[in-house]
Amino acid sequence: MVAKAGTRSSGNTFSESMRSFWKKNGQGILLPAIGIISFLVIWQFLSSTGITRLPAPSSIFTEKRTRELLFYPFLDRGGLDKGLFWQTLASLTRVAQGYTAAAIVGIGLGILVGTKPKVNQALDPIFQFLRMIAPLAWVPITLIALPNVQLAAIFVIFITAVWPILINTTVGVQQIPQDYKNVARVLKISPRKYFLKILIPSALPYIFTGLRIAIGLAWLAIIAAEIVMSGVVGIGFFIWDAYQQNYVSEVILAVIYIGAVGLMLDRLMALLQRLILPNQ
């Protein structure tokens, strides 16, 4: 029956499939599109009436400098004068370094703290204290403590991202059901096997929650860090530089870049989580 229907309508398969796609996803596309367009229209209106000094969204295309930045992201004139792609990549590299360090330290320490209640008791106050310190507050200290700005920026990423990973890992390890531990005890499973077959799989959902929160925080922190630590290539400093020279539409373009990259990072972690933990 399906085959028959197929042959009859073979002439307009494409339009048919388009229609069914639209039927399924129409609302999901239409409503957000309406929302975004109305937002931009209102913004444009407000800017054109002069109520706010903020340039209209159309300025991204109308301003020459900004249009260049938009259309040539891979431009490299040496020094700090690079296209937005390179700026973003520089920031992302720092995030990757700091975040990797945070993940290694956070997961490792989290497992230690989660399995050893005494260590937990000893370290918990320090953790709770340190995690309350805003990323920006670390900047002066790290600039004094560390030899160069690059390393300082990476450290700020690290110190921001490590807490959610550490705390979620700890909880994940503590939350391993007593049943699983009992199975391990009765079977006298070796520590290595317990770690690989029971502890890690059981705590993994918690670890991923921590990692996902941390990637967002790390991306937030890099912008702040780069704004303060001037003189490095990076999207954060780019914004600061543009603001100093009053290129406001460049700032807006960079903000769009930041938002888009942050969104992509979060989706990437979600995808990774789905790939590794298909059942969760």
């Binding site: 049943d179 009992n182 009765v186 079977l187 006298k188």
Partner: peptide, 9 residues
Amino acid sequence: PGPDRMVVF
């Protein structure tokens, strides 16, 4: 505990 006394939970 030990595997000589296995538990069905």
